[in-house]
Deep mutational scan, measured.
Amino acid sequence: TIEDAIKKLLKLAQKGQPYTFGDFTVTSEEEAKKLAKWLKKQL
């Protein structure tokens, strides 16, 4: 689910690992949080 993807994304971001989700490449926890907010709006 999208919720699971968001959780995984935040965990990876906390470890400092870049994470690619579709067109987004997230390289920081701050970016992960922005992406998570955006994804929730898409639901």
Results as ranks from 00 to 15, higher is better:
3 E>H: 09
30 E>K: 10
30 E>M: 07
3 E>A: 12
35 L>H: 00
40 K>W: 14
42 Q>M: 11
15 K>M: 13
15 K>Q: 11
2 I>Y: 09
31 E>G: 05
26 V>K: 04
23 D>A: 10
13 A>F: 13
31 E>D: 12
22 G>I: 11
2 I>R: 02
10 L>I: 12
28 S>D: 04
18 P>S: 07
43 L>N: 03
8 K>T: 11
31 E>P: 02
43 L>C: 05
12 L>F: 10
38 W>V: 02
40 K>C: 14
24 F>W: 12
30 E>G: 05
31 E>C: 15
10 L>W: 11
26 V>H: 01
41 K>S: 11
34 K>I: 08
1 T>H: 04
29 E>T: 09
6 I>N: 00
13 A>I: 13
41 K>L: 06
5 A>F: 15
34 K>C: 15
24 F>Y: 08
40 K>Q: 14
9 L>H: 01
16 G>S: 04
29 E>P: 11
15 K>G: 08
17 Q>M: 15
41 K>C: 10
29 E>R: 07
13 A>E: 01
19 Y>F: 15
32 A>Q: 02
36 A>P: 01
13 A>W: 14
6 I>Q: 00
39 L>Y: 01
27 T>L: 13
30 E>Y: 15
3 E>T: 05
16 G>P: 02
4 D>G: 09
42 Q>S: 09
20 T>D: 14
5 A>L: 15
12 L>V: 08
4 D>C: 15
1 T>C: 15
6 I>C: 04
29 E>Q: 08
16 G>M: 13
8 K>N: 09
3 E>S: 05
39 L>Q: 00
1 T>D: 08
9 L>M: 09
27 T>K: 07
4 D>F: 02
33 K>N: 11
30 E>T: 05
40 K>L: 14
10 L>F: 06
6 I>A: 01
39 L>R: 00
27 T>F: 13
19 Y>Q: 11
25 T>M: 08
36 A>G: 02
21 F>M: 04
30 E>P: 03
11 K>E: 14
32 A>K: 03
29 E>D: 06
40 K>F: 11
1 T>Y: 10
31 E>Q: 07
7 K>N: 09
29 E>F: 14
11 K>Q: 12
33 K>T: 07
2 I>S: 01
9 L>S: 01
21 F>I: 05
38 W>P: 00
14 Q>F: 15
41 K>T: 07
35 L>P: 00
36 A>V: 14
32 A>I: 10
30 E>D: 10
22 G>L: 12
37 K>H: 10
39 L>H: 00
36 A>T: 05
31 E>K: 03
25 T>E: 05
25 T>V: 10
14 Q>S: 11
10 L>D: 01
42 Q>V: 12
2 I>K: 01
9 L>N: 01
15 K>A: 10
43 L>T: 03
19 Y>T: 10
2 I>C: 12
36 A>R: 07
16 G>I: 08
12 L>R: 08
29 E>Y: 14
35 L>Q: 00
35 L>G: 00
24 F>M: 02
29 E>C: 15
26 V>S: 01
10 L>H: 02
3 E>F: 15
8 K>E: 09
9 L>P: 00
20 T>M: 09
12 L>A: 10
7 K>M: 06
32 A>L: 09
29 E>M: 13
39 L>I: 05
15 K>S: 12
18 P>I: 12
15 K>C: 05
15 K>W: 14
12 L>S: 09
31 E>S: 11
34 K>R: 08
16 G>C: 15
23 D>Y: 15
5 A>S: 03
4 D>R: 12
21 F>T: 04
7 K>L: 11
32 A>T: 09
42 Q>N: 04
16 G>F: 15
24 F>L: 08
3 E>P: 07
20 T>C: 15
3 E>K: 10
20 T>A: 04
1 T>K: 07
40 K>Y: 14
18 P>M: 10
1 T>R: 10
21 F>N: 04
43 L>W: 08
14 Q>W: 14
35 L>C: 10
33 K>Q: 08
26 V>F: 08
29 E>K: 08
24 F>A: 02
26 V>P: 02
19 Y>M: 09
29 E>I: 13
35 L>N: 00
38 W>R: 02
17 Q>E: 14
26 V>G: 01
42 Q>Y: 11
21 F>Y: 07
9 L>E: 00
25 T>A: 05
28 S>Q: 02
37 K>N: 10
15 K>P: 03
22 G>R: 01
16 G>A: 05
8 K>Y: 09
13 A>D: 02
8 K>P: 01
24 F>S: 02
11 K>M: 13
29 E>G: 08
9 L>V: 03
20 T>N: 06
34 K>M: 07
6 I>Y: 04
30 E>W: 09
15 K>F: 13
27 T>Q: 03
13 A>T: 05
7 K>W: 07
28 S>G: 05
10 L>Q: 02
23 D>T: 09
23 D>C: 15
27 T>A: 05
25 T>R: 03
17 Q>F: 15
33 K>I: 14
21 F>W: 13
4 D>H: 05
6 I>V: 03
6 I>K: 00
7 K>D: 08
7 K>H: 03
41 K>H: 08
23 D>W: 15
2 I>T: 02
6 I>W: 07
3 E>C: 15
17 Q>A: 09
37 K>S: 09
40 K>R: 09
4 D>K: 10
30 E>L: 09
41 K>Q: 13
8 K>W: 13
30 E>N: 07
12 L>D: 07
4 D>V: 04
7 K>P: 00
29 E>W: 14
42 Q>L: 12
32 A>S: 04
36 A>M: 09
9 L>D: 00
14 Q>K: 09
23 D>V: 14
8 K>Q: 08
28 S>L: 12
31 E>L: 14
3 E>N: 04
32 A>Y: 07
22 G>W: 14
42 Q>R: 07
5 A>Y: 15
27 T>Y: 11
20 T>G: 07
21 F>A: 03
20 T>S: 06
35 L>D: 00
21 F>R: 00
30 E>R: 05
17 Q>K: 07
28 S>V: 07
21 F>K: 01
41 K>R: 04
21 F>E: 06
36 A>K: 04
38 W>D: 01
19 Y>W: 11
18 P>F: 12
38 W>A: 02
15 K>R: 09
24 F>I: 10
36 A>H: 06
14 Q>H: 05
39 L>T: 00
38 W>G: 01
34 K>H: 05
10 L>G: 01
3 E>I: 14
15 K>Y: 07
31 E>T: 07
43 L>A: 06
40 K>S: 13
2 I>D: 01
14 Q>T: 11
25 T>W: 07
24 F>H: 02
14 Q>A: 14
19 Y>K: 07
4 D>A: 12
40 K>T: 11
6 I>E: 00
25 T>K: 05
9 L>T: 00
38 W>Y: 05
18 P>Q: 09
18 P>G: 12
38 W>N: 01
35 L>K: 00
41 K>D: 12
3 E>L: 13
41 K>Y: 12
34 K>N: 11
22 G>Y: 13
13 A>G: 09
14 Q>M: 14
39 L>V: 02
5 A>R: 06
39 L>P: 00
30 E>A: 08
6 I>S: 00
24 F>D: 02
4 D>I: 05
10 L>S: 02
4 D>P: 01
35 L>F: 05
35 L>M: 02
1 T>A: 08
43 L>V: 08
6 I>R: 00
21 F>C: 15
16 G>E: 06
3 E>M: 14
41 K>I: 06
38 W>T: 01
22 G>T: 06
7 K>C: 10
41 K>F: 06
25 T>L: 13
23 D>H: 05
7 K>R: 09
17 Q>L: 15
1 T>I: 06
26 V>E: 06
23 D>F: 14
2 I>V: 11
9 L>Q: 01
31 E>M: 08
18 P>W: 15
32 A>F: 08
27 T>P: 03
17 Q>D: 13
36 A>D: 03
11 K>W: 13
11 K>A: 12
26 V>T: 03
5 A>E: 08
13 A>Q: 03
2 I>W: 13
31 E>N: 04
40 K>D: 10
19 Y>S: 09
25 T>P: 04
22 G>H: 08
16 G>R: 03
6 I>G: 00
12 L>P: 02
15 K>D: 10
38 W>C: 11
18 P>H: 11
15 K>V: 11
10 L>V: 06
24 F>T: 02
6 I>P: 00
33 K>G: 03
5 A>D: 02
40 K>I: 13
34 K>F: 06
35 L>R: 00
16 G>L: 12
19 Y>P: 12
37 K>Q: 13
27 T>H: 03
28 S>W: 12
39 L>E: 00
35 L>W: 05
34 K>T: 05
36 A>W: 14
26 V>Y: 02
18 P>T: 05
5 A>H: 09
11 K>C: 14
19 Y>R: 06
27 T>V: 12
15 K>E: 10
12 L>Y: 09
3 E>Q: 13
2 I>H: 02
30 E>Q: 08
17 Q>Y: 15
27 T>W: 10
42 Q>F: 13
33 K>D: 07
5 A>P: 01
35 L>I: 04
9 L>G: 00
26 V>N: 04
17 Q>N: 12
17 Q>R: 05
28 S>N: 09
15 K>N: 10
10 L>E: 03
29 E>A: 08
